[in-house]
Amino acid sequence: MNGCDITLSNVALTALPSGALWWPDMCLLCVSDLHLGKSERLARRGGAHLPPYETKDTLDRLSADLENTNARQVVCLGDSFDDLDAARGMTEATRLEISRLQAGRRWIWIEGNHDAGPVEFEGEHVFELPLGPLTFRHIAQANGHGEISGHYHPKAHVRTRAKTVTRACFLVDSQRLIMPAFGTYTGGLSSHDPVFDPLFGVDARAILTGRRALAVPMPRNAERAA
């Protein structure tokens, strides 16, 4: 699968090149920040009419990961919908597609800041999910341990000998893992941002998404990491 193997709190995980996280022992696939319905929300608020295809594109990619892994459990790590009205406004085709993906699987919606509150889709709706030694929640907490979260949409810049390459990435150290955003219309926050400094120790890695999941030492401001 071209993934990158990780150990967090003695749990073996695989960061997939798509930006999803695979927990083989639990047959569990985790994705974060799908932001379904983003273009609809922007238009509703009087903004530009972005190409209304990102929900389909995001679900297509999720579907491919589900097929490849044959996952039995799915955790959506919050901000699955761009807002609650977007969740309510999903087209019939989108609803059918979500039901098709859910069929035969345990499905957990974790609440994010964009979709805090009940959504009318099948599955469990929780604020956070402790599972074995790991805890799944939307936003990382200062003292989190074995914590898997999303929210920040991290990306990393890597200087190679010929050019600088920027990719969405996982950030991981011995305490926690922050997932990249899986949604098609999502920007990123540079791993250099000071918000990450108190969250990650000196041994932190960035795992870049792309054709293969590739680990590098987390690119950050050298002065601050000390």
Partner: peptide, 21 residues
Amino acid sequence: LEEEAERLLETAGVTDQTVTP
């Protein structure tokens, strides 16, 4: 990118891609 990732990890004293902080 693969070349650079390898080089960076080597510099950091790690030789394979598995991340085990």
